[in-house]
Design a protein around this nucleic acid. Sequence first.
DNA 1: GACCAGGCACATC
DNA 2: GATGTGCATGGT
Length: 210
Amino acid sequence: MKRALKGIYKKLYSHFGPQAWWPGDSPFEVMVGAILTQNTSWANVEKAIKNLKNNKLLTPDKLYRLHPKKLALLIRPAGYYNIKAKRLKNFLEFFINHYRGSVKKISQKTSKALRQQLLCVNGIGPETADSILLYALNKPVFVVDAYTKRIFLRHKLIKDSGSYAQVQDLFMRNLKPSAKLFNEYHALLVKLGKDFCLKNKPKCNICPLK
DNA sequence: GACCAGGCACATC
DNA sequence: GATGTGCATGGT
């Protein structure tokens, strides 16, 4: 499995090149984006983030103080805007109360301990927590998403019943724990998924993995 | 007009 | 533990 995972990575990297993830100007922006992108296309998330930036609200304190209805209105393009406004507030409350809204402070926590804390925030599940750990805080944690599962299922490398934790373990047990590698690998899987591995087109003859 | 997108919580069995 | 449902916009 070690070789298979490395081989897939090499094929993807040589085909697509570096992906330069996560698109975002600051760790805090990545955290916000991680929540906004839940089951939503990135193009819509960008619009929501742009709204926040244009209003100079993209800081923990300002966002936290913002009236929930105003926040919901600003992030409207990202969809599920009412529930995402609540989820953002939940995260901000946690971030401010535990770490004073400081990326430096939150970075000092071990990824294991911080993951536990993040998962206790209502609205943050495994993928969002891991995205924050890897892409905002540069911790070596592998992010599993719908594309990852779909691609590996289609290539018969995981079982349909595989849980998030099981798929994540597969990567983390068989690859060196490198944030740079995990970052690029996950981004490449998303790129492959977007370009080739569509939901209703299980047969893909031009898949770069073949 | 249908389908999809970088999930999660909650209810129910 | 598995399965179903609500949440919502914007692009193809």
